[in-house]
Design a protein around this nucleic acid. Sequence first.
DNA 1: AAGCACACCAACCGCCGTAGT
DNA 2: GACTACGGCGGTTGGTGTGCT
Length: 353
Amino acid sequence: MGRAPCCDKNGLKKGPWTPEEDQKLIDYIQKHGYGNWRTLPKNAGLQRCGKSCRLRWTNYLRPDIKRGRFSFEEEETIIQLHSILGNKWSSIAARLPGRTDNEIKNYWNTHIRKRLLRMGIDPVTHSPRLDLLDLSTVLNSSLYNSSQLNFSRLLGMQHIINPELLRLATSILSSQTQNQDFLLQNNVEESQISNAHVQNQMPPLLQPCQLLQTPVQEDQARLMMQSNGENFTQNCPMNEWQSSGLMPSILTEDYIPAVTNYGYYGQSNQSVMDPPPSDDQTSTFQSNSSNNFSFQSVLSNISSPSSSPTPLHSNSTYINSSSTTSHEDERESYCSNMLNFDIQDILDVNEFM
DNA sequence: AAGCACACCAACCGCCGTAGT
DNA sequence: GACTACGGCGGTTGGTGTGCT
């Protein structure tokens, strides 16, 4: 049974806030703090409902809000967290200091989601969109509709499916299941994460890539690298990367699999729920040179090189127009180039079949 | 210059969970 | 247990800005 909207009564004001209203709200909260949103507007002399006041404060007026465009690192964090948490915007926001759930939600819907779609990645599952393949009809039942792996079914199809494609499919299947397993675990332990976040500022977060770093995943990545090396180098703007100093480590000759690993995600050799290191590594970006590799990690390296420059925004100004566009294009360029070899390979294999 | 389409984002809406009675 | 009040969350909307034709 729903309740009547709180703004319906007494002709309370709706719509955009005026600077005067903002000031009233700020002044009141600075003096009395925020607590009872129901009575706050009346006490503050505002013709608004408490809900509207709370929203205005939490999404706009709060002093610790970081405004401006999202950095590479923030975007990467959002994508990785979304792959784990789904549309739990408040949970994601809790791990991005200074960002509100509303802001992240908007950014996801207007930027990231569209880009993932353009790249052929399902923004919900974070997997390559297998619906682009004929194979999808085979996989869908086990990928999305079954709680249990159906490897045998796949293996039974070896005679009709290209073995490499089959390998790729089972790899994705494997990572899907592991993500599901994690989600179950995460539901149980979500509150622990939140508590830790409150206590430690930086939460003992999980490394989503870690979840995918199975031998199968390594095989998958290696498979892609091997079978697409030629195509890959053709599609990638090597010169751009080299000249800009942003060339991902995977493209270097002496490639050592490296995962961009935010300190607060935890170390690769930790269990997923291990507490963060006690030193300040928890708040610094760092590379992990351990022998981990995953598809998402590759994307991470591409879209957000660990040596990426300082975010282009300041705290209080919003830089758009040309700078925004070039920044955006830059990101997409790296991502889509990386995806070129991947998706194209799938399509090529499919065509071959 | 005008009209249109699209992008962006602040704000709203409706539902849910929880605490209090 | 039923009901209510409240805070919070996620989805959606509508106003504004921007770019293109």
